[in-house]
Design a protein around this nucleic acid. Structure first.
Lengths: 240, 240
DNA sequence: CGACACCTTGAAGAGGTTCAAGAAATGTGG
DNA sequence: CCACATTTCTTGAACCTCTTCAAGGTGTCG
């Protein structure tokens, strides 16, 4: 067995609420522990899985931060998402038994490895788990709908504002500040996710800073005016 | 009961291969019939479901053609996909018990209504169905990854070329021509899907026509040079 | 046949990209 | 712990793609 893996239990994991927030009986909860085979540590800059890898597990992020990205034959690259503690990655691999994207750790990370055959087996026996797995997939579909909207119909400022609000909201749900955050990704990675060039991302940050909407020092961002960001994403109807 | 619904059976449906291509025993196959409660006819221009509607079923398209779209509070609209016979629609509703997008018929259509609680129930008992449902969701996630790539990193010509190739490939899988197709959607809907304005879509069609890559007469499109379209999507490496 | 929705095309303009240079942070090896 | 190499970020200027606005053409349906 990989030396970077250790045996663990879900039943007293403090991320349980986020990662497997199922209404489980004590008995079911014990069985959930069977789901996580091991944990695995991923070093910053290293893939958890890559395009083409055999699919055999979903991963629950315990600590750390990931990006997922897809690549075309001619080398173009698109970041499809950023994932943080409590989120599940690897769903792309189910349909074809191989992963179709890369998942790269943007900081040292640890994940719970949940072998897919055990998930299928267990979710046949525990309806609450079955339902939860379905919801996780559906949530991912709905999330991507939102990104399509962003890429298809928003301008640079709207995209970056939406991105910041989304990040800070997810961090807040994990107990972090509502207004302060440290970006774990480069401007280029943000740009790839938002369908913009890194220079445009940088310029837009500067513009927000000029307007006293945020303070930006490299990857440290402080949101000074959340409402202004909201208004940028969703222009308030003109008063008349 | 709604007069527009009738009772039916999957077990001898000729779309079975596309819609529920599971390796089923005869016994299981009979049980699949329990899945489809009814059929429902949808008139052109009419929603199958709308944003905010209670979620209680997935729909398998028997005939017809749909678009799905999401809307922002300020009225912006993004087409998230076009669906044709054999495809499953409604997955967005699972996570929150309500639909989060609109599904509109672009031509008169008929769908099989598969109540979601029956799907969950039956897929606990029929592993092949469980696996299939998971694959359908995963496929949708992977499909959307492709659209993200398109919206995030491609130029207008590349987007339209990719769109045409995708449409014709899916139609071909259903027994239609590899080179001829009738668009069921307007230029505006194509544009919304591709993150372009309708004028840009129109101009790009005209450009392809000038270059003898396609023939376009309103919604009738004939592809004259498939390889040219492929080369536009995926520029071949320069010879040296 | 007339009304309406849809499509095409042109010209001007805006938003984002590209290219380039330099500054700031980060990591590395001595 | 410091010097140096590397990566990342910022900013400016020119350019290009796509959008916007406008007008006219085409097709469709009652």
């Amino acid at each position: 067995m990989n030396p970077h893996t250790i045996k663990v239990a879900c039943s007293n994991c403090n991320l349980r609420e986020l990662c497997m927030p199922v209404g489980l009986t004590d008995g079911d909860l014990g069985r959930l522990d069977d789901l996580v085979a091991t944990r695995r540590k991923i070093k910053r800059g290293t893939p958890l899985f890559s395009n083409g890898d055999d699919f055999n597990a979903l991963y629950a992020i315990r600590t750390g931060f990931f990006k997922t990205s897809v690549t075309t034959e001619d080398g173009r690259d698109q970041v499809t998402g950023f994932q943080m503690a409590g989120e599940i990655i690897g769903l792309d691999g189910i349909v074809g038994d191989r992963h179709t994207c890369d998942a790269i750790a943007l900081e040292d990370a640890e994940v719970c490895v949940m072998p897919y055959d055990r998930i299928e087996e267990l979710s046949r026996e525990v309806p609450a788990l079955q339902s939860h797995v379905h919801k996780i997939m559906s949530r991912e579909i709905v999330r991507e709908h939102g990104v399509l909207l962003l890429l298809g119909s928003m301008r640079a400022e709207e995209r970056l504002a939406a991105f910041l609000l989304n990040l800070v909201q997810r961090l807040h749900a994990r107990g972090f500040s509502q207004s302060e955050l440290v970006l774990r990704m480069t401007r280029e990675e943000i740009g790839s996710y938002l369908g913009l060039k890194l220079e445009t991302v940088s310029r837009t940050f500067s513009k927000f800073a000029d307007e006293n909407i945020v303070e930006v020092k490299q990857r440290h961002v402080r949101i000074l005016d959340t409402q202004a960001l909201r208004d940028i994403v969703n222009p308030p109807p003109p008063c008349h």
